[in-house]
Design a protein around this nucleic acid. Structure first.
Length: 270
DNA sequence: ATGGTAGAAGGTCTA
């Protein structure tokens, strides 16, 4: 009998501030594995006790002061992959890779926080956008070397909304970082070279609007509903037939002291 | 064209 494996991703925007919301997330989604981004927390301050109290007995965290930071919280054992690159040689805590001790054998899991890229979508004048494009080039080249490996999952805040209906207005966001053609094409190459399948769009038709992020800079995020789908779950082709369900937990955006991103969950039958 | 809010800070960065 196949067993379920529930993997969730969430840009938590400060793991210390939103530790109470992790409990709500766990009650709502019951993930076996939860990948976080923007923990904004140096490892020595990581709230390990509170997280272990929720039942996540296996934890990997890579954080720094102020910005970035990723973590993987798991109910099942995993081994940390030590051999993945230091992207753009910045040491800036945007990726953790692990091998999960999953039902039916190991699963290679990657948790990414792709650079947001700043405001101006021109690499010649905006170093943040330049960094974003370089980061995408590097992960694509690396991903190509991993493409043949079985049972892979990649999740995270990839800071790109690739499809027309991954944003509230395709026309108005064509010049806005996260939805520009150059980024969307770069993401397409990343998926193609790595042989990745979009596990959420596997279930949700491309013509249906779907968002995982709503800006803080809005009087009423729910009424205006100007969202973008920045958070993703990808799987290798051999896992496509194992996809059981997806869930984007929109209620999390209305939680008290919410993150601007909501959790995204995919369940596999392994 | 601008500013709007939020979080790390305890400056301004970053998103």
């Amino acid at each position: 009998m196949p067993k379920p494996l529930r993997i969730a991703t969430w840009n938590i925007n400060s793991v210390r501030l939103r530790l109470p919301l992790l409990k709500e997330l766990d009650a709502a989604l019951a993930p076996d594995v939860l990948c976080l981004q923007e923990t904004k927390c140096p490892d020595e301050h990581f709230p390990l006790e509170g997280i272990e109290a929720l039942g996540f007995r296996h934890v990997a965290a890579k954080g720094m002061k102020g910005y970035n930071g990723v973590a993987i919280l798991s109910r099942i054992p995993f081994a940390l992959r030590e051999q993945d690159p230091d992207w753009c040689e910045k040491g800036d805590c945007r990726h953790l890779g692990v091998t999960l001790d999953a039902p039916g054998g190991p699963v290679e899991l990657h948790d990414f926080y792709v650079p947001a890229g700043g405001d101006v979508p021109d690499p010649a004048v905006n170093p943040k956008f330049h960094h974003k494009l370089n980061f995408l080039r590097e992960v694509t080249a690396w991903g190509e070397t991993r493409a043949a490996a079985p049972r892979r999952v990649l999740v995270g805040d990839l800071n790109i909304a690739p499809l027309e209906h991954d944003v509230w207005s395709h026309r108005q966001l064509l010049d806005v970082v996260s939805h520009t053609p150059v980024e969307v094409e770069a993401m397409g190459r990343w998926m193609e070279k790595g042989e990745w399948v979009d596990a959420v769009r596997h279930f949700v038709p491309a013509e249906q609007k779907l968002y995982s992020w709503w800006s803080y800079r809005n009087r009423d995020w729910a009424a205006s509903d100007r969202g973008r789908r920045l958070d993703h779950v990808w799987v290798s082709p051999d896992l496509q037939g194992r996809l059981a369900r997806q869930h984007v937990h929109k209620p999390a955006r209305a939680w008290t002291q919410a993150s601007d991103h909501v959790p995204v969950l995919v369940e596999l039958s392994l």
